[in-house]
Amino acid sequence: MTSQSSDADEATKASGERTFEKAKKKAQEKIDHLFNISLNIAVTGETGVGKSAFINAYRGLKDDDEGAAETGVTETTAEPTPYNHPTMPNVVLWDLPGVGTPNFKAKTYVKKMQIDRFDFFIIISSVRFKENEIMLAKEIQKRKKKFHFIRSKIDNDIRAEEQKKTFNKEETLSRIRKDCQENLKELGNPPVFLISSWNLSAFDFEKLVSTLNSELPEHKQYALLQSAPVTSVAMLEKKVDMFKKLIWAAAIVSGGIAAVPVPGLSFACDTVTVMTFFTKCFHAFGLDDRSLEKLSERVNKPELKNLKKAPLLKELAASSAVRLGGSAVGEFLCSLVPVAGNIAAATISFTMTRDILQNGLKMLADEARGVLREAGLE
């Protein structure tokens, strides 16, 4: 068996399909989902509970940054307001008006918000969950939508309790959680996630992401994991693992493009696929300047702001272009040979793209691990 046939078999096997044609179709769907899938997250609750602050924290923005959701102790949202993720514009967090206000009664709230456009709801309270939130959750349930409860401003509660001689952090958190759940019994004792928007890594944010990830369809998981901020090594490794599992798909898509007998097309498309994949990794791993600055402030290490990682993408682009360009002529010549030639062109591209993606992903992941070590978040 030729090496080309072996590579074609390997590509097909990686897809879980029986033929290379079916493998290509499945791979294209996976990559389309990775690059383009949308996710709409509705954030709601009563006025002043920290809805906008949570949206800003998830997007890696401070409350006074340009493009941040407006925050305040009074109602600042008069209608559903979309906020696109800075590096994942297809992920949108919607700041909904406070439920229970004179303009938005709980009984009519769901209809006015047009909830079918949202993938799931985050219901936030800074104290106990009350009648309005429970009524809202019931209405969401009727429409078979997912929702989760967040108890916000936990850092404020901890600071207040720290003044007591008998303070115990875990007991305090347990008491807050139990107090919230007591009011939610009629909903089946749903979990309550304790969150500090000032520091998402401090409490239950990662548990929230893991729970959401377990409930979403696979293609929606791609959007969630890419957009969630890196709050620990564990979160980073989840992202790395996701990209690892999709390398075969990017490599097969590259192979499918290579089989088209148009000079230069394979090189151009291979490069776009590879660099889009790496750019997604770069932002998902928190290597962009904005993410590094945010991390620097959170862990109080100003030197992290100087860890410029953008040259990594340029280095990967240059090395990938050289390798892919070197194979472009061979791919084109193979593609002119009917049937067997097309398979040869495809397998050349599959093997090369797979290797490039594996090496590039490892480089970016190692850099991200290094950043977390510098931040003291190993």
Score class of each variant (00 low, 15 high):
residue 373 R to S: 08
residue 47 T to E: 07
residue 124 I to E: 04
residue 230 V to Y: 01
residue 31 I to P: 01
residue 119 D to I: 13
residue 287 L to G: 07
residue 342 N to D: 13
residue 227 S to V: 02
residue 366 D to N: 15
residue 81 T to Y: 06
residue 201 S to T: 00
residue 309 K to P: 02
residue 115 I to Q: 06
residue 210 S to A: 14
residue 268 A to S: 14
residue 143 R to D: 12
residue 57 A to W: 01
residue 290 R to I: 10
residue 119 D to E: 12
residue 221 Q to N: 10
residue 80 P to D: 11
residue 262 V to P: 04
residue 203 F to R: 03
residue 210 S to I: 07
residue 89 P to W: 03
residue 334 C to M: 10
residue 21 E to K: 14
residue 296 S to T: 03
residue 83 Y to L: 10
residue 375 A to R: 02
residue 135 M to S: 14
residue 243 F to T: 03
residue 217 P to N: 07
residue 101 T to K: 13
residue 82 P to M: 08
residue 60 G to Q: 01
residue 241 D to F: 03
residue 121 F to N: 06
residue 293 E to A: 12
residue 21 E to I: 13
residue 208 L to G: 00
residue 131 E to I: 10
residue 43 V to F: 01
residue 368 A to E: 01
residue 150 I to F: 06
residue 162 E to F: 01
residue 241 D to P: 00
residue 35 F to E: 07
residue 326 G to T: 02
residue 190 P to L: 05
residue 285 F to I: 02
residue 231 T to N: 02
residue 299 V to K: 03
residue 103 N to Q: 14
residue 164 K to I: 03
residue 163 Q to Y: 07
residue 123 I to S: 06
residue 226 Q to V: 00
residue 4 Q to Y: 13
residue 24 K to E: 15
residue 362 K to S: 13
residue 221 Q to R: 15
residue 314 K to E: 10
residue 140 I to E: 08
residue 278 F to I: 05
residue 129 F to E: 09
residue 132 N to A: 09
residue 173 L to H: 04
residue 229 P to R: 01
residue 153 K to R: 08
residue 263 P to N: 11
residue 174 S to A: 11
residue 133 E to M: 15
residue 150 I to R: 00
residue 149 F to I: 07
residue 172 T to M: 10
residue 112 K to F: 10
residue 102 P to F: 10
residue 166 T to S: 12
residue 191 P to S: 13
residue 201 S to Q: 05
residue 27 A to D: 01
residue 298 R to A: 05
residue 36 N to Y: 09
residue 96 L to F: 11
residue 275 M to S: 04
residue 305 K to W: 04
residue 67 G to T: 07
residue 338 P to K: 15
residue 81 T to I: 06
residue 212 L to M: 09
residue 117 R to S: 11
residue 366 D to H: 07
residue 134 I to W: 08
residue 166 T to P: 00
residue 254 S to T: 14
residue 18 R to Q: 09
residue 62 K to Y: 08
residue 327 S to N: 14
residue 314 K to C: 08
residue 75 E to Q: 11
residue 369 R to K: 14
residue 197 S to T: 02
residue 282 F to D: 04
residue 187 L to P: 08
residue 348 I to N: 04
residue 139 E to S: 11
residue 74 T to Q: 14
residue 58 Y to W: 09
residue 93 L to R: 01
residue 306 N to Q: 08
residue 24 K to S: 15
residue 104 F to E: 09
residue 344 A to T: 09
residue 242 M to P: 00
residue 337 V to T: 07
residue 234 A to C: 03
residue 121 F to R: 05
residue 352 M to Q: 12
residue 101 T to Y: 09
residue 175 R to I: 05
residue 154 I to N: 03
residue 373 R to G: 02
residue 40 N to D: 15
residue 82 P to E: 06
